[in-house]
Simulated scan of single mutants.
Amino acid sequence: MRYAVLQGGKRMRPLVIIAACEAVGGTAEAALPACCALEMVHAYSLVHDDLPAMDNDLERRGQPTVHVAFGHAGGILIGDALLSQAFMALMRGADGVPPANLVAAARVLAHHSGVDGMVGGQALDLALGQDAHDLTALEQVHALKTGALYAAAGALGALYAGADADTVRSLETWGLKFGIAFQHADDVLDDDQKALRTQALARVDELVGECDAIAAPLGDRAEPLRAISKWVRDRAHAAAAGVKAD
Score class of each variant (00 low, 15 high):
residue 128 L to S: 12
residue 50 D to V: 11
residue 25 G to M: 02
residue 136 T to I: 10
residue 227 A to K: 10
residue 235 R to M: 08
residue 192 D to I: 00
residue 84 S to P: 01
residue 21 C to Q: 05
residue 114 G to A: 03
residue 125 D to E: 10
residue 8 G to K: 05
residue 23 A to G: 08
residue 146 T to D: 10
residue 24 V to M: 05
residue 19 A to S: 09
residue 201 L to I: 07
residue 145 K to V: 07
residue 194 K to T: 05
residue 45 S to F: 02
residue 197 R to P: 02
residue 241 A to Y: 05
residue 81 A to V: 02
residue 153 A to Y: 00
residue 218 L to Q: 04
residue 34 A to Y: 05
residue 189 L to F: 08
residue 200 A to N: 06
residue 209 G to H: 07
residue 229 S to M: 01
residue 24 V to D: 02
residue 12 M to G: 09
residue 57 D to H: 06
residue 13 R to I: 03
residue 191 D to M: 07
residue 159 L to T: 11
residue 186 D to P: 10
residue 160 Y to L: 12
residue 50 D to E: 09
residue 187 D to H: 01
residue 97 V to D: 09
residue 9 G to S: 13
residue 169 R to K: 04
residue 75 G to H: 04
residue 202 A to K: 09
residue 155 A to L: 10
residue 156 L to A: 08
residue 91 M to A: 15
residue 161 A to K: 06
residue 174 W to F: 15
residue 57 D to C: 08
residue 92 R to G: 13
residue 5 V to P: 06
residue 204 V to K: 01
residue 210 E to Y: 04
residue 85 Q to Y: 06
residue 180 I to K: 00
residue 132 A to V: 02
residue 17 I to Y: 12
residue 136 T to M: 06
residue 31 A to W: 06
residue 207 L to C: 11
residue 173 T to W: 00
residue 131 D to H: 15
residue 201 L to W: 02
residue 28 A to C: 03
residue 124 L to F: 07
residue 79 G to H: 11
residue 124 L to G: 11
residue 177 K to D: 10
residue 16 V to S: 05
residue 32 L to T: 07
residue 206 E to Y: 09
residue 35 C to N: 08
residue 59 E to G: 01
residue 156 L to D: 04
residue 211 C to K: 01
residue 138 L to V: 00
residue 38 L to D: 13
residue 224 P to N: 11
residue 117 G to L: 05
residue 99 P to I: 12
residue 242 G to M: 04
residue 203 R to P: 01
residue 152 A to N: 06
residue 218 L to H: 04
residue 173 T to I: 02
residue 67 H to W: 14
residue 85 Q to P: 03
residue 87 F to M: 09
residue 207 L to V: 04
residue 86 A to Y: 09
residue 151 A to N: 03
residue 132 A to P: 09
residue 202 A to R: 13
residue 238 A to Y: 01
residue 192 D to R: 14
residue 228 I to S: 00
residue 186 D to L: 09
residue 20 A to R: 01
residue 194 K to Y: 01
residue 64 P to G: 15
residue 65 T to I: 11
residue 175 G to D: 11
residue 52 P to M: 08
residue 178 F to P: 04
residue 113 S to M: 02
residue 205 D to T: 14
residue 59 E to I: 00
residue 42 H to V: 14
residue 110 A to P: 03
residue 66 V to L: 13
residue 123 A to K: 02
residue 18 I to K: 12
residue 91 M to D: 11
residue 158 A to Y: 12
residue 135 L to T: 01
residue 229 S to W: 00
residue 136 T to F: 07
residue 43 A to F: 15
residue 155 A to K: 10
residue 83 L to A: 11
residue 162 G to L: 09
residue 178 F to E: 05
residue 168 V to K: 04
residue 235 R to T: 05
residue 121 G to S: 06
